[in-house]
């Protein structure tokens, strides 16, 4: 374990802290600026107050090829009110000044390229971003990006899928920092009623290769507390919940304060499911 100051490697530190408590991490996702900046800030606060260990904020993109209808719709809502990457980073800065949780940004590659890799990463770091996930940037294409991320102290979180070969998995584990994002299923993001048949097997396979060198968090399709406890019990270090939360935002466009209450309650029950001792 690297020596962690308060500012650097906050993601790894968070996982370390949770390990001591025999808990998995609950990573809660919302799309930045959805449905408007003010509601988004209030909703993010609700996630944190509900007990999210790490907050993941998506930068909306016009062509989100890895996302299902729920996150597509949220991206459209955010874009139509003029959300830009810079405005999202500003909002993260507001949140990170107030709350000590680690922040992860999820962005497709093009908005990052458009800002310039170095400039984006520097801004992200200054705004309190600890890690970044780029769903359309596999390790093979990301040497420059990874080098700059290291330089700016932003963890590069790569993804692994159920069909990632063992050889690739070794590389992906080796290049990932903060945690590895394990995609639990064949498909795009979106809430599913049950855990995919590949999920638990994939967790065990990846954990056996990761050997404690890097935490593994599972995402895509995780929407219920049962899903969270199942992946944590089979060895995952964290569970990522996105569409199930974004759906709450989308279902409460007319009564945003209801969304806050619901988000907080949902996150509380998801967080409860990460506690190994109480399961």
């Amino acid at each position: 374990m690297p020596n962690t100051s308060h500012d650097d490697d906050r993601i790894e530190a968070k996982f370390g802290e949770l390990r001591g408590l025999r808990e998995g991490a609950l990573i809660a996702y919302l799309t930045g600026g959805d449905p408007d900046p003010k509601t988004f800030l209030a909703n993010s606060t609700a996630l944190i107050e509900g007990g999210a260990d790490i907050v993941e904020i998506g930068i909306p993109f016009s062509d989100p090829i890895a996302d299902g209808p729920v996150i597509q719709a949220s991206s459209m809502r955010a874009l139509s009110n003029g959300t830009t990457p810079l405005r999202i980073l500003d909002m993260i800065r507001e949140l990170s000044t107030e709350f000590p949780v680690p922040f992860v940004v999820l962005s497709y590659y093009n908005p990052i390229l458009a800002m310039g890799l170095g400039r984006f990463l520097q801004k992200a770091r200054e705004s309190g971003v600890d890690g970044i996930v780029v769903p359309d940037l596999p390790v093979e294409e990301s040497e420059e990006f990874r080098n700059l991320s290291l330089k700016h102290n932003v963890d590069t979180i790569y993804l692994a899928a159920p069909n990632t070969s063992r050889t690739r998995l070794r590389t992906v584990l080796d290049k990932s920092k903060g945690f590895l994002y394990l995609v639990s299923l064949y498909g795009v993001t979106g809430p599913r009623d049950s855990l995919s048949p590949q999920a638990l097997e994939a967790v065990r396979a990846v954990k056996s290769l990761a050997r404690g060198k890097i935490p593994v968090s599972v995402g895509f399709g995780i929407s219920q507390p049962e899903h969270v406890s199942a992946v944590i019990q089979s060895g995952a270090d964290g569970a990522i919940v996105g569409s199930a939360l974004v759906r709450i935002v989308g279902n409460h466009l007319d009564d945003p304060s209801d969304a806050e209450t619901q988000l907080k309650k949902t996150v509380q029950s998801l967080k409860e499911a990460t506690r190994l001792s109480s399961n």
Binding site: D136, P138, E140, E141, L159, A160, A161, T164, V183
Partner: peptide, 12 residues
Amino acid sequence: GGQYVPETLMEP
């Protein structure tokens, strides 16, 4: 060119 795709597509 290149392959800027989600991880699940790398194998196929």
